[in-house]
Design a protein around this nucleic acid. Sequence first.
DNA 1: ACCACCCCTCAGCAAATTTTAAGCTTGGAA
DNA 2: TTCCAAGCTTAAAATTTGCTGAGGGGTGGT
Lengths: 226, 226
Amino acid sequence: MRVLVVEDEHKIANSIKTGLEQEKLAVDVAYDGTDGYDLASSEEYDVIVLDRLLPGMEGAEFTKKLREKKNHTPIIMLTAKGQIADRVEGLNSGADDYLVKPFAFEELLARLHALTRRPKQTLDETLKVSDLTLNTRSFEVARAGKSISLSSREFALLEYLMRHPGQILSKDQIINHVWNYESNILPNTVEVYIGYLRGKIDKPHKMRPQLIHTIRGFGYKIGSKG
Amino acid sequence: MRVLVVEDEHKIANSIKTGLEQEKLAVDVAYDGTDGYDLASSEEYDVIVLDRLLPGMEGAEFTKKLREKKNHTPIIMLTAKGQIADRVEGLNSGADDYLVKPFAFEELLARLHALTRRPKQTLDETLKVSDLTLNTRSFEVARAGKSISLSSREFALLEYLMRHPGQILSKDQIINHVWNYESNILPNTVEVYIGYLRGKIDKPHKMRPQLIHTIRGFGYKIGSKG
DNA sequence: ACCACCCCTCAGCAAATTTTAAGCTTGGAA
DNA sequence: TTCCAAGCTTAAAATTTGCTGAGGGGTGGT
């Protein structure tokens, strides 16, 4: 799947790019509106992530022009916090969804999946690792049939782990995906949340294989085997 | 690949330069902001390594001016520990990535590769020497199919050796790449770690060719022959 | 206002890793 | 063969990393 990111803040653009590439998506980046527009009209993308405030060409104008040319590539608009009025304008201009900055990377990923979800896979959004299940639509989590209630941060963390089963995720990666890029989270916070998750997922099932594993010096991973 | 290093501390600048050149990269060095900026705008680089605190021109201003000129060369910003402690500021500076000093050289190298990785290149990087494999993404190490667990320093050292198979690496080189430039590590520490690695990689496979070799007076190398 | 819950930080402990130090081995020159 | 420097090994010391309980501050419901 091909994604175009149009964003002038390099750090954000780059972190989105890195994150999406980790998800095996092909990402192109443009740092201003005109470059982005040229790319969008000459290449075929499955989705476009577009900053609303851009040098060169504004997000709204970008969208409008693209739609006039009958290009209906789904667009996710990024808008700065506090500009609630933008919502209307963003959607009016023809964007399909919008996201308020600063956002956690996983949020972007979720909306991106929502927009590009092919009809077939619409229904089943249930992640499964061993006897642990997580439904990204209903926010239901259960282990061995027993329902588990999580706070939203716990849920986001577990979802991130479960989307990468068996893979070691460093605390830095976790912070970048589960928290928004402006929050200054200490690594210890991740440890604390891992502790919360263990308390709800592993501790009540002492007879079953533990699912959350620490790999000292590297990070955490979820999975039934070692 | 061409790299520009803008750093006023000669010791750091030179150690980066030496290290990068060993990686077959073409490196230019500037010791102050204005010189660096002139070079950056007149030459084509693949990536710029930029100290945040500079005589002549600050890193943030440097970046801003370059971006205004539509120069989107990826920039890695070096920031002193505690100087920011803040991803927000790193982000505002307009750089693509940043690295907190003091860092181990291999860390810089990894980020540099991440920023310049051409689309074609595979994301899944597995280094292989004889029947020993090391995956830099999943951190898995195995010999003859049997998985081996390493501490992070052991892993970093082995990765460095395996990135230069058959090549003799002196203890000094190893110290410069695997440890950060501020740590005053005794050569003996390297010997100790080589010992640890042998214990995990060569000792359990006495029937197979030993992979870690000492070249007395020169250093170490990894490889199946001699 | 009060309570319940959630997010995050902090401090203290335990355990693993990293580094140093000291004595021992080995290779090779004389 | 002897000797010395380079390298190896082991264990103790120093440091780092991860886990946990406690608690402050914020938010939303009653």
